[in-house]
Design a protein around this nucleic acid. Structure first.
Length: 971
RNA sequence: GCGGGGGUACCCGAGCCUGGUCAAAGGGGCAGGGCUUAGGACCCUGUAGUGUAGACUUACGCCGGUUCAAAUCCGGCCCCCCGCACCA
């Protein structure tokens, strides 16, 4: 115990040692073991977009801990992994390399990518090849994952393509594919582009949203249409005038229904891509139209067209309707223009009186406004001075929009719509107007989007886009019902899932352009988009094993073979082309053994996209007994001051560097313990270091324990093993609910503090410690496998701890009395501590008085009677007690004690009471702790019975002694 | 907007479903003590307030309610966060 020399914990060395030993014997290759329960777990395979960061390792680590736990609880585990190569990420990186983007090159170099590799990375296939290896060797193997690498696959191999095409044929057979028009981002010179925050394709506007504007048709005298775009079609009832930019040369466009629209040139370009047969037939300058009137659709009012310099021709149609009562911008412009009525008359010949006569028309009431001009009201409040005051106007717009949307109601000027809520009327009114031929729609981004080539990105209509029909009622209902039978973690997501499945609507599933992926079987040159090609892919892990070892080729995956393997259909006489019947049977048998998936683990970003389609596609194309069994969602590791860790911001250090610095075990423990799975946490280097030192401490502790050679028979040994047994019981329960953090807390902190107490109490039994260490090390193994293997070997074991079984709760070690005794001792120590604190005494002598005999017998009787009677009455017990002459002598004391007991008992739980009933000799136990107590306080300690004769009790404290709570005197 | 989550001590973070054992686990930080040549590591103690005896008072976003009893259940309010579609 005193010898401090402990071999240093050299983590990197240990990691390499065990990594090699495991791989030498191919420990993690999964084969069928028909007698064992199988467990199939995988994580949502990462997109190949370059280096991963320390945050990604969180989820992967969870998957590994669960795998290892299952392995150690009698399961045959399959934990495969692959790479999602389709879609944009790999191409995105390759494009950046190809255009020699300095940031990208710097990023590659700083992560240690060799120059000769960088030379090749302009090719997306090279990107996939290179990074697959990095993920496997530098991340997953290093972290000790028990992944079966013989099954690795990616989504751009021939075999995978065949598999996905098969899936789409099945969807089609089930009538779950449909064609209809769709709007998608499009660059007039580059074709389809992706608009997403990573800005792979776009130079600007990655976070833009596609909006659907209502276009209201205002009729000019000559019958042509001024189409005003708005997000608030209901305000049509409040239109007072129109705004056109006087300097813009508006285009006259003829649509295929013969109508003529007057819109800005920018809008004309957009319209061409949103409609068929659009023809430009003329041009008219804004100023030429100003001063004319036009007819408001539906209300048929005639309103003036006025000049508005604020009108932006690049937004929507470049035609704006004015609703001053509810649109702060319009109000401010109206106020401005009314001030300039004189010039207006001069320049455009509009009578001053007409302009000045324009009054805001209110059509919405929220019950809160004091005037019939809410927009004007807000502008006054915020101190808007002119239409140039854009910041305040923006704020005003937000306020009024939000308020009116939530609590607004249409007023009596709105005809048949009077009294309807804004939140409800919006869509119905828009649809009504469209049906009457008075309105249309127009697709537009919420902000400017600029392509890498410099052109503006617009929204294009694709007339015959293919969709997967997730809106299908039966599919949705079946999926919802099934989801409720799944093990979904955390619980919040389990509750959420039915709503998500309901909300999930048809999804455009193919696209054109430079994307990696599988060609859609029903339309040449169109590629299945990357969400849709990764839904039932875990099934492919069963097949990839055979392809990887060359039992068959990717192109051999015929529809017949896949039907046979995945659906058990055997309808062409067992002929699978080049694949032998025997091999087909073997693959099928593997599939039937491993499938369904028990846990699919992924980050929270998958909650509304990947997981729902994962469930729905299984339900759609697989037999019911192959539908997924469980989902585990993990939240993120964020940047130190919040926000996503991102490469561009130079976030956290590369994974291999971190592993080397902090050790794999420490990082694994950090991910697991620093927060629950359903919580984001910040990457915190100093916290990781703390976990490393925690492991160091455990390492040293175990080395110290191993030096103990003696044997003792104290209560403390029973106590330690009992505590351990109960930890084991609770850890097993906790792990069944996948509360990894809770389990880690017990193993690395709870058990540790127990062994500390054991030593402090003078525990020193070699036998006990051996037993203890055997269990403790096994418990650590799923979380910190390297250190566990090393310690396991140190303890003289020859097999891997990885493949041992976790200890199970053993009733024979459960000793409630031993635990009660230590708790009792601790509570006495607490009391003494409290007394010392309050009195500020440096103790020279401590006397502990255990309760007198008669109190024990009173307690006994009161408890019995308390539990025997439904309506407990102290008086009844007192009566029966007084029958005893011995007690009668103490009359008053007995009554007092009884009454107090009665009250206490009522507050107690069953468990507390059962403790009171335990056969426990306080006096003897305290005496056995004398040495310890004297040591703790470095003073004289005496244990006496309160009813012994001639006791030392200068302050009469002994009278306070009751069972389980002795009196204490300190001097 | 639609859907969901959350506000706990100096900080992170358990507990809340199944009310009492909760002045609230665990970790970190800070302070004191021990150990040590010193530092670090490690161990002990403290970390809402009061208290010369093992307690009491005030506390889990705010207000109110249910209950013998509320961090936990119910109602209202304030504030914060996340996902929302072609993006894995």
């Amino acid at each position: 115990m005193n010898d401090q020399k402990v071999p240093e914990l050299n983590s990197n060395e240990i990691e390499n040692k065990w990594m090699k030993k495991w791989s030498d014997v191919d420990l993690f290759k999964s084969e069928q073991k028909p007698t064992q329960k199988k467990f199939f777990i995988h994580f949502a395979y990462p997109g190949v977009s370059g280096y991963l960061h320390v945050g990604h390792m969180r989820g992967f680590t969870y998957a590994d801990i669960i795998s290892r736990y299952k392995l150690m609880t009698g399961h045959n585990v399959l934990y495969p992994a692959g790479f999602h190569a389709s879609g944009l990420p790999a191409i995105g990186l390759a494009k950046h390399v190809a255009r020699k983007d300095p940031e990208t090159l710097e990023y590659l170099r700083s992560n240690g990518c060799p120059e000769e590799v960088i030379q090749k990375l302009h090719d997306p296939r090279e990107v996939v090849n290179y990074f697959s290896k990095i993920y496997m060797n530098e991340y997953w193997k290093k972290f000790g994952f028990i992944i079966d690498f013989s099954r690795v696959m990616d989504t751009i191999s021939t075999g995978y393509n065949k598999f996905i095409q098969w899936q789409f044929k099945k969807l089609n057979e089930k009538d779950l594919l449909v064609q209809k028009p769709h709007f998608a981002p499009f660059c007039p010179s580059c074709g389809p582009v992706a608009v997403d925050p990573s800005e792979t394709d776009v130079a600007e506007g990655g976070s833009a949203q596609a909006l659907e504007f209502a276009v209201l048709k205002f009729f000019l005298k000559d019958g042509s249409i001024l189409p005003a775009a708005t997000l608030r079609p209901e305000t049509i009832f409040g239109v007072t005038n129109m705004w056109l930019h006087p300097e813009v040369n508006y285009k006259k466009i003829e649509l295929d229904d013969g109508s003529i629209w007057v819109i800005s040139p920018e809008a004309a370009v957009k319209l061409e891509h949103q409609r068929d047969n659009v023809k430009e037939i003329g041009e008219v300058k804004g100023s030429e139209l100003i001063g004319q009137t036009c007819r408001v659709p539906y209300t048929n009012e005639e309103v003036l067209i006025l000049p508005g310099d604020f009108v932006d021709p690049t937004i929507a149609t470049g035609v704006v309707m004015s609703v001053p009562a509810h649109a702060p911008y319009d109000w401010a412009a109206l106020v401005d223009i009314q001030k300039e009525a004189v010039e207006l008359e001069k320049n455009y010949g509009i009578p001053q009186s007409d302009v000045k006569a324009i009054k805001a028309i209110s059509l919405i009431t929220t019950g809160k406004e004091t005037t019939d001009n809410p927009a004007g009201e807000i502008c006054d409040e915020l101190g808007v001075t002119s239409q140039m005051d854009t910041e305040k106007l923006e704020e005003a717009t937000q306020i009024i929009y939000k308020r009116e949307f939530h609590s607004g109601v249409l007023t009596s000027i709105c005809g048949e719509y009077t009294g309807l809520k804004i939140s409800e009327v919006k869509t119905t009114l828009q649809q009504d107007l469209i049906d009457m031929g008075l309105a249309d729609t127009f697709q537009e981004f919420s902000e400017h989007v600029v392509c890498r080539c410099g052109q503006d990105v617009i929204i294009k209509r694709i007339p015959d886009q293919w969709f997967i029909r997730y809106s299908d009622k039966e599919l949705t209902e079946t999926s919802k019902t099934h989801a409720q039978t799944m093990n979904v973690f955390p619980k919040s997501y389990y509750r959420d899932l039915p709503a998500v499945l309901d909300w999930f609507t048809d999804r455009a599933c193919i696209r054109q352009g430079s994307w990696l992926g599988t060609e859609f079987p029903f339309k040449k040159d169109w590629i299945i988009e990357p969400i849709s090609d990764s839904t039932i892919y875990p099934a492919y892990y069963v097949i990839s094993k055979f392809i990887n070892r060359d039992d068959l080729k990717g192109e051999d995956l015929s529809d017949e073979l896949l039907d046979f393997v995945l659906k058990g259909k055997d309808n062409n006489g067992g002929n699978f082309g080049p694949v032998s019947r025997e091999l087909a049977e073997q693959i099928k048998s593997d599939f039937d053994y491993w499938y369904p998936v028990d846990i699919n683990l992924g980050g929270k970003e998958h909650k509304t996209v990947h997981f729902p389609v994962y469930i729905m596609n299984h339900v759609a194309v697989m037999p019911q007994d192959k539908w997924p069994r469980g989902i585990f969602v993990n939240w993120w590791v964020t940047q130190t001051h919040g926000g996503k860790i991102s490469k561009s911001k130079g976030g956290a250090e590369p994974i291999p560097d971190a592993a080397q610095k902090y050790s794999v075990d420490a990082m694994r423990l950090y991910y697991t313990h620093v927060a629950s799975a359903d919580l984001d946490f910040e990457w915190d280097v100093s916290a990781v270091r703390h976990y490393k030192s925690r492991l160091n401490r455990i390492w040293e502790m175990i080395h110290k324990l191993r030096k103990i050679e003696s044997e003792s028979e104290d209560n403390i040994n029973d106590w330690l093993l009992s505590k351990l047994a109960n930890h084991i019981r609770s850890i097993n329960e906790i792990m069944e609910n996948f509360d990894l953090r809770g389990a880690a807390n017990e193993i690395f902190f709870g058990i540790y503090s127990d062994i500390q107490w054991y030593l402090r109490r003078g525990g020193e039994s070699k036998k006990t410690i051996e037993k203890f260490l055997d269990h403790w090390i096994r418990l650590m193994a799923p979380f910190t496998p390297y250190i566990a293997e090393e310690l396991w070997e140190l303890q003289g074991n020859e097999q891997f701890v990885t493949v041992q079984q976790l200890p199970q709760f053993d009733e024979k070690y459960n000793k409630p009395e031993a635990e009660l005794a230590e708790d009792y001792l601790k509570s006495n120590i607490d009391d003494i501590k409290e007394i010392l604190k309050v009195t500020n005494i440096e103790p020279k002598k401590i006397v502990i008085y255990t309760a007198p005999e008669w109190k024990y017998s009173v307690l006994d009787k009161v408890i019995t009677s308390f539990e025997g009677e439904e309506q407990f009455k102290v008086d009844n017990v007192i009566k029966s007690l007084m029958a005893d002459p011995e007690l009668r002598k103490r009359g008053k004391d007995v009554v007092n004690y009884c009454q107090k007991l009665g009250k206490d008992l009522q507050k107690m739980t069953e468990q507390d009471r059962s403790k009171l009933k335990m056969d426990f000799n306080e006096f003897e136990f305290l005496n056995s702790c004398l040495k310890f107590l004297k040591n703790e306080y470095s003073c004289e300690v005496e244990i006496v019975k309160a009813d012994a004769t001639d006791i030392y009790d200068p302050q009469g404290k002994s009278r306070a002694a009751v069972p389980s709570r002795p009196a204490i005197y300190v001097e």
